[in-house]
Amino acid sequence: MMVWLESRPFAIAIAESSWLFPIFESLHVLAFAIVVGTVAIMDLRLLNVANRDRSVSELISSTLPWTWSAFAVTVVAGFLLFSSKAAFYFDNGPFRLKMVVLALAGVNMLVFHFVTGRDMVRWERGAPPLRARIAGALSLTFWVTIVAAGRWIGFT
């Protein structure tokens, strides 16, 4: 399947062009920076470190649309980069780590939205409870790991 993906015309175009890969890479980094930055805004609020004057739900509703839009751009650009050397990335250790931790970050977010954060209205104006702080700390740890693993791909 990876070989099939690599042989798609767009994948060949990216692999053969000297400027398409760097352009998509710049776009990937720029959009990814917005993802990590906006996620960190929410995590730091859950940890009661920053933005303490804004309620958690207000912060989430004003930040999350930016996170998702930027994430969509990151994934599309990332997929195009991946397609140019699909078999290489698929077998690459740091790439696999990055995907696993990305999934963990997703699970952590779902658990917060549907379980630990459901009673948010009770505490969202003040200091979040321990379970919400743990969600924030885990999220920050996952995203830092994703950045590190992503950068490591370039050195393998």
């Binding site: 920076a33 917005i34 993802v35 990590v36 930055g37 960190a40 992503g150 950068r151």
Partner: peptide, 11 residues
């Protein structure tokens, strides 16, 4: 460097 880029780009 990239983590700091994430912070500055978002801000």
């Amino acid at each position: 460097h990239i983590l700091a880029i994430a912070a500055i780009v978002t801000a």
